[in-house]
Amino acid sequence: MRAVTVLPGILNSVQLEDVPEPPLADGEILVRTIALGICGTDHEILEGLYGSAPPGAERLVLGHESLGVVEDAPAQSGFLPGDHVVGIVRRPDPVPCPSCAAGEWDMCRNGGYTERGIKERNGFGSERFRIERGFAVKVDRALGLAAVLMEPTSIVAKAWDHVERVGRRSEWWSAETVLVTGAGPIGLLAAMMGRQRNLKVHVLDRNVAGPKPELIRDLGAVHHAGLESLGDMQFDVVMECTAATPLVVEAMKRCAPSGIVCLLGVSSPGSKTEFDIGGFNRKLVLNNEVVFGAVNANLGHYRQAADTLKRADRKWLDRLITRRVPLANWREAYVPQKGEIKVVLMFSDL
């Protein structure tokens, strides 16, 4: 079968090659791959900045945003041939740490976890893959290709889950306003989930043309192309989704008293900016504000994501997928184009 593989740590080493069928050790459920979503993590791996191959292997099969259809599953596994499924990315460490032992591998404390398509485990970027029943999530077939958005939606579901948990530190706290910085897939999904909560959502994104401003408006959110249009507004919840250092600083400035800032972008080390840490500390402490980071997701968050996508406007979700690339043209999928949102590599028909 064919798979997209890379030599971790080696720039421009990606290729489409023939690989053996997935081993039973990967899981008892055999899945035919429909589509693979591509994100910033994939591009970092392609640039040689991130990623590691399975023990004893040189190459890593890429892909952690999956969508497939079950071809074979054991009886009483909860899955049947024809079911559409998405694979969970992270696996708990073998020790395990307290978080992994509790099923919260997204909060692993010792770094011993593995991740499909990223860290020490082959990903879903092959014509077929196997997966364990406890790490496969059934999705509504009616979602069609939009189900490939499950993995990024799970990350945002975790972010909202943790925001609301932090908010419950005070019995009276409730959010009314949200600022989302960035209108990539994560930012747009964060805005969508804010609107599903009937919150007043503002999205800061520099694009004034292309699909993003219209997608923001069609959510019933407010689009801001520049900081000046925000005036002196502050927000109960801020979700920073760009990882751009100036916007990380701005996000913390825009937090209202008793507000919560969630950092969802992963910045590159070495990026520096002038920052008044004393003023930040004063504002944070005197206003009871919280700033935290969130990454990855556990099974509960994937289930929340499945519910979120099921309740979303299907036509709006479909518009997030701005480019579908057939496997025959696979290299094109890894070449970013200006203004696009989500690129999907198609392995087979729905």
Rank of each mutant, 00 (worst) to 15 (best):
S271V: 13
A157Y: 04
V222T: 15
P152K: 09
S77I: 05
D83M: 05
D232H: 01
H224G: 13
R206S: 04
Q337D: 03
D205Y: 03
N207W: 10
D106N: 15
S99I: 02
P92A: 05
G184E: 03
P92L: 05
L309C: 04
I260D: 08
V19M: 09
A175C: 08
E151K: 02
V180W: 03
I34N: 00
E164V: 02
C100Q: 12
D232I: 02
T41A: 10
R168F: 00
T177I: 08
L24V: 14
R323L: 01
G9Q: 03
T41C: 10
F292G: 12
V6E: 04
L36D: 08
V31D: 08
K310W: 03
L227V: 11
T308R: 08
C262Y: 04
V69N: 00
V237H: 11
F280P: 00
K310D: 08
R109V: 13
K315T: 15
H84C: 09
I29T: 11
G182H: 00
C100D: 12
S13D: 09
A53N: 06
G259C: 10
I45H: 04
E127A: 13
F79L: 08
V249P: 02
V14P: 04
G184Q: 04
L299T: 04
L247T: 14
T177N: 13
P54N: 08
L350E: 13
G103H: 05
N287F: 10
N296S: 14
G339P: 07
L188W: 02
I186S: 06
I186C: 06
G231D: 12
E228K: 14
V285C: 11
R331W: 00
V148L: 02
V343F: 01
S13F: 07
L189M: 15
V178G: 04
M1N: 12
G293I: 05
P336C: 05
E289N: 04
G226I: 01
F275S: 05
L143H: 05
E164N: 06
E340R: 13
R197N: 07
I118F: 07
Y113H: 14
V70I: 14
E214M: 10
H64L: 08
N296P: 02
G259I: 07
D218Q: 15
L49K: 15
V203N: 07
L345E: 12
L179R: 12
S170I: 01
